[in-house]
Design a protein around this nucleic acid. Structure first.
Lengths: 163, 163
DNA sequence: CATGAAATTATGGAGCT
DNA sequence: AGCTCCATAATTTCATG
């Protein structure tokens, strides 16, 4: 499915998607067209889900990250669906996970400061009933990357092998 | 610094940075050149930090997200520097925060499965001494976005006002 | 997979409001 | 200052060998 060259292409695009296809081709030892076709195919296959601009959180005034651990007594499918819909409407919630273990859900929330978090929190609990909430704040973002590790992609299929 | 139009441009670019400048201009009511210049300036100013391709985690075989809460007895500047350097070398660690409260550091780790996490964990503790580690796994990623909320950007400076 | 042409888009200049 | 209009350069996109 994804061979060594594709992986190198993905690695480049994960870092900077403004690099011209011709230059990417040069780096992976391909001319423009085949390189372009590979990228095209990976987009069709849904490997590449999009290309976006990343912003500096400080420059847009969201300096604080809060992690919100949520525990609930509600465990029905319907409740989760409603909960997910409510959460998705808050642009402050940048990540949202269903967890294994003690905590049921975990949110990562981006806001300017503690006061803004408090305001967000009030708006959240006004919209949905939650049993237990525990918030912790990050003082510093030491690493943040959108680059997924590519060392785990399934091994390349040797040419002509069965699918 | 960032006015209403800039905000709308950022909102578009955060969602999809392949949209041509002419089309962005059309949407925000600007012709190509001034729109292009605004984008250019926001890149120079560091508001836009880059443009990247996003991948589907499942397609590159990183289906599991682990949150790793780390507590340490070491609190010197030197130790943190070394710790941060070690962490940065692991591509599996996609986010890394210094926390307030009980937990000292929090990692988000992307791996294929629990076994791969265990392997990562062993490689991590072989590289650096950590007092206490607590890992929780996410069963499902319900929301993940790189789009920061733009509702908190400082209000536009009225024309001709003092700096 | 390479070559090269055609369409689209980015980039920058000159002048206007 | 910031904008529109217009010209040119770079890049993407696709037909053909």
């Amino acid at each position: 499915m994804i061979d060594r060259i594709d992986r190198r292409i993905l690695s480049i695009l994960q870092e900077d998607c403004t690099i011209p296809v011709a230059e990417i081709g040069r780096r992976v030892g391909l001319s423009t067209t085949p390189c372009w076709r590979r990228i095209q195919k990976m987009e069709e296959d849904g490997v590449i889900t999009g290309r976006v601009a990343l912003l500096d959180p400080k420059k847009v005034n969201v300096k604080v990250t809060a992690f919100v651990a949520i525990t609930t007594s509600q465990h029905t499918e319907d409740w989760l669906k409603k909960f997910a819909d409510v959460i998705r409407e808050f642009p402050e919630v940048v990540e949202f996970y269903r967890m294994a273990g003690q905590v049921d859900y975990l949110l990562r929330v981006s806001v300017p400061d503690i006061d803004a978090y408090d305001d967000f929190y009030k708006r959240l609990i006004a919209k949905i009933e939650i049993t237990d909430v525990s918030t912790t704040f990050a003082m510093e973002q030491i690493k943040y990357t959108t680059q997924l590790p590519l060392g785990y992609v399934p091994a390349e299929k040797p040419k002509g092998s069965a699918s």
